[in-house]
Design a protein around this nucleic acid. Structure first.
Length: 262
DNA sequence: ATGGTTGTGCGACAA
C-alpha cells in the first residue's frame, strides 16, 4: 500500500495539483494537512472523481484542517483534540481490518524559539508532549502508520544548513529533543529514513519567502511518515515528490510517500 | 538585522 502525506496549503486552490499527485504517485491513501476549508466546503465530489471517493475530513474556516483520502472504504478512527483546542490538527482512520492511520498537523510555532515569550512555541511544545504521552499509552503491538506535517526537521541532513538553523523554529535542539521523545515513546520508525540514509540531504518544504527554488535549495524536511514497531520490516520504498514544489502555483510543501506491506 | 511570499477572505493573521 502506498501512503502519501502532503501539506496542500488550501485544498480548494490546488485540486489540479492533487490530481497530478494522484496520477504520478498512484497512492492508495492520501493524507492532507492545511486544507484551509470547512468540512462542508471540502471539494468531496471533485476528489472522488480523481479516484478517492472515501474521505474522512476534519476542517475549519481559514486555518489548519486535515483529511484522509482513500480508494477503498475506510472507517473513522480515534481522533481527539490536542491542547484543549478544536483546531483540527489530527484525524485517524481504520484501514483494512487491523491497521490505524494517523494524520497530524503539528503547530508551526511562530518565529521566536522561546516558550516564555512566544505562546505559539509554547503551544508547539505542549502539543509534542501530549503526542508523546498518547504514543506511550496506546497498545504497543498494533499496526499503525503516523504521517503528517510535524513542522520539525530533526537531523542535520534534514535541513540545508544545520549551523544556520540551530536557533530557527523547526530545527532547535528543544524541538528536536521533543520530537525524539515522541518517537521513542512508541518506538515509531522513520519510514523515509529507512530507505534514504541520513547521510543524504532531503527536504520536503521550501519557504515562499525567498526565491530559493530550485537554485539554492534551502529546504527542510518537515513532513514525515512513521510506522509502529509491528511494521518495522514492512517499509519497502519511500521518497519525496520534489518536483511538485516547482509546479505552477505550488504548495510550499512537497508530497512525501512510502510503500508499506500490510 | 531585516524582509522576503502565499493563503484566507476582505482585515489581519498565520505560516
Amino acid at each position: 500500500m502506498r501512503f502519501v502525506s502532503w501539506n496542500i496549503n488550501s485544498v480548494r486552490l490546488r485540486l489540479n495539483a492533487l490530481k497530478r499527485v494522484a496520477d504520478e504517485l498512484s497512492p492508495d491513501f492520501i493524507c492532507l494537512q492545511e486544507i484551509k476549508s470547512e468540512t462542508t466546503d471540502f471539494p468531496a465530489d471533485a476528489i472522488a472523481e480523481i479516484g478517492f471517493p472515501h474521505q474522512i475530513i476534519r476542517g475549519m474556516k481559514g486555518y489548519n484542517g486535515v483529511a484522509i483520502l482513500a480508494r477503498t472504504p475506510i472507517a473513522g478512527g480515534d481522533t481527539r483534540d490536542w491542547c484543549g483546542r478544536h483546531d483540527c490538527r489530527h484525524i485517524a482512520a481504520n484501514i483494512g481490518s487491523d491497521v490505524e492511520l494517523h494524520n497530524f498537523y503539528v503547530p508551526a510555532g511562530g518565529d521566536e524559539p522561546d516558550p516564555n515569550i512566544n505562546d505559539k512555541f509554547a503551544h508547539k511544545l505542549k502539543f509534542l508532549k501530549e503526542a508523546e504521552t498518547w504514543s506511550r499509552d496506546i497498545t504497543p503491538n498494533a499496526k499503525r502508520i503516523l504521517v503528517g506535517d510535524l513542522n520539525i526537521a530533526p537531523h542535520e541532513n534534514d535541513v540545508w544548513s544545520h549551523k544556520q538553523l540551530l536557533s530557527v523554529v523547526s530545527h532547535t535542539p528543544l524541538e528536536v529533543e521533543a520530537l525524539s521523545d515522541w518517537q521513542t515513546a512508541h518506538g515509531w520508525i522513520d519510514a523515509i529514513r529507512t530507505i534514504i540514509p541520513e547521510t543524504e540531504k532531503i527536504y520536503s518544504w521550501w519557504s515562499y519567502r525567498n526565491r530559493t527554488w530550485p537554485g539554492s535549495d534551502r529546504g527542510r524536511r518537515l513532513d514525515h511518515i512513521w510506522v509502529s514497531p509491528a511494521l518495522a520490516e514492512s517499509v519497502k520504498n519511500a521518497g519525496i515528490l520534489r518536483d511538485a514544489r516547482g509546479w505552477e502555483k505550488p504548495s510550499d510543501h512537497a508530497p512525501v510517500w512510502a510503500d508499506v506491506d500490510l
